[in-house]
Amino acid sequence: MSETLLDVENLRVSFTTRTGTFEAVRGISFTLGRERLGIVGESGSGKSMTGRAILRLIRPPGRVEADRITMHGEDVLAATETRMRQLRGGRVSMIMQDPKFSLNPVMTVGQQLVESLRAHEKLARSECRKRAIAMLDEVAIRDPERVMGLYPHEVSGGMGQRIMIAMMLLPGPEILIADEPTSALDVSVQLQVLDIMDQLVKTRGMGLIFISHDLNLVAKFCDRIAVMYAGRIVECCKASELHKAQHPYTLGLLNAVPDLEHPRPRLEVLQRDPAWRDALSVSART
């Protein structure tokens, strides 16, 4: 992990609403190398906003501030909108929760894949098609020729998410943000989709930010874990050292999951301490 792909320092995302300013992300710092970083936290803790802020996709009334967001040393905050469009998709890509909503319902899978590639490379249509089909093959889709002509509602959820992965990896980005990529899927296909994503990320030597609220899943698929609570990172550790976690919130998350090997009579209910909210963010920089 010598090379730093992404460097974020003191990131804040706030929303101005009628009732005042709401801070969704409150000063977090992390770096990402060619590794898999997991971000875990409960609903509303600011995970998605972190992901979108990196792509500069927060729109008014939302506001992004940071001391630094750099990609390969390039300042993202100061980039022009044109440059930003090259970075989006070309350098960083993102997969969202539910392919039912994140694929355009009135465009065929093929149109959407080809469009994704053509946004970054000036290629002939036939060449784009060939690469798209090859990519579909890589995400283990059978009969990709046929799937190219299907509309999103005609494919299953697991297939939709694999198409999404194919689409986002097609222009060859080096960072992938996966925002709860399997929460909307059937349990039976979750692992399959994750395995495919993991495989691709590894063989391409990409950096992955895996956002989830399932701590065990993250521990299984990631190298490092950052735990977010109320817009801050409260704990950061190696996945292999999760059992050494200190923060009561992390422990709470661990204990709130049933464990087949060590059954307990009752699952613990997470008790939240108001003091966590005010504690300073832990840095997840390496």
Partner: peptide, 9 residues
């Protein structure tokens, strides 16, 4: 899907 489109660049 509009966000997806933006993410694509």
């Amino acid at each position: 899907y509009v966000i997806t489109a933006r993410v694509k660049g």
